[in-house]
Design a protein around this nucleic acid. Sequence first.
DNA 1: CGCTTGTTTGACCAGACTCAAAGGTTGTGG
DNA 2: CCACAACCTTTGAGTCTGGTCAAACAAGCG
Lengths: 235, 235
Amino acid sequence: MKEREIGDAWKGPPQCRSCGIRDLVLFADLRQTDFSLIHLPIDEVRFKPGESLYHAGDSKPYLFTLREGTVKLVQYLPDGSHRIVRLLRQGAVAGLEALLGEPYAHTATALQPVLTCRIPRAVVDRLSAETPRLHTQLMKRWHQSLQQADDWLTELSTGSARLRLARLLLQMLDATDGDICHLPIREDVGAMLAITMETASRTVAEFRRAGLIADVGDHLVRCNREGLEDVVAEA
Amino acid sequence: MKEREIGDAWKGPPQCRSCGIRDLVLFADLRQTDFSLIHLPIDEVRFKPGESLYHAGDSKPYLFTLREGTVKLVQYLPDGSHRIVRLLRQGAVAGLEALLGEPYAHTATALQPVLTCRIPRAVVDRLSAETPRLHTQLMKRWHQSLQQADDWLTELSTGSARLRLARLLLQMLDATDGDICHLPIREDVGAMLAITMETASRTVAEFRRAGLIADVGDHLVRCNREGLEDVVAEA
DNA sequence: CGCTTGTTTGACCAGACTCAAAGGTTGTGG
DNA sequence: CCACAACCTTTGAGTCTGGTCAAACAAGCG
């Protein structure tokens, strides 16, 4: 719930230019001169697991670039049920809808310790008006989000629980290197795959017994890529 | 499969300015002077039901504004299975990914007789570079698509078949006025709701018997809004 | 008229949901 | 340091929805 600014010094332009993940983020294509157009502070904001960057329905003029950690986007229905519609990782942007003056469509919650750059809408608006170099990056972000949404629709919302879990794990492996990935709590697994927590638990346990995954502590699992691919293939 | 240009005269700017659905489409905010920047022909292209505007994997430099009819966006998985991830209606834009030089992510197929304006990518690129008035519209389109994708995930991919069908019908009613909406063939209903054709058929038949819908010919049904809302509410 | 395409329905079965209870962990306060 | 609470996970038993396979029926078309 609480955000903690790291000091209140203007963390903007100087940091952006030398940003460690510059080539991953929204400002990847900006040139030296463009940075002088940034006239509002871009703060680094940290969130602890379980804290939310923003809540569905909020209207605030900020978007967030994810520097570290993973964020879940949760969409709620009028009846109170909910579904995780996307996971955001390093380099992704959360809250693009703020650029349109729309309230946030989801609640964005940290799954792990998260480090973000909080960008005021006005900064992007100004850069957009002055330089075309941001447009492409913005469209790429929209496109990525949409592609991910469509993939969830086809991969994680169809087929048996086994199949969905296998696809989820493979998707998470793609996002990291190595065979280790983060496996969220069962309730979140359920909310991602549109199955119940119990089915998620049973299926995870089954995968464990079948040697497809092995716990390595702290919600991390080592995955057997080939095995998981077999599960997907044979289905 | 085949596109048919209506003549080969340049159908662009003059028509755009006086477009009947100008306020709905991508060029809504353009001014008189902006139209002079359009240097390539924008053709009206018609598609018969079952014909495709484009196929997944194609790389062509066109996006399409939908003037009449409904289009389904179908995404395919490596294993050959597929899912309908979105329906596009009047005013919507298909093939936005062409702006990024990406191959089309879906196959876009007409469900009814469809009339489109086929816009070369270069036209949008040029307008984008010269005027900021297109940006907002473009972002709105991306945002709409994303919102629709997320809604499908939460509304049409969770809950029982009854619930999903009720939500689908209510969604389609929102898109039209009156209580009549188009109900696609059962296989497409199944591909939208991630259920089998048989379950789709059974559920439609059940709704018909319960008086929630009534056939009025040619794949059109009159819907009982309150009844459908009850189905959604009681679930 | 026969063919294709779409729809409906039945019977059976399996996977997933529900309800319920029992272990594990973690963190907190005594 | 221990005990308890809160939270998460696992497992079981019973039920029911939806998948599968199969057949019959209807409509459109060459």
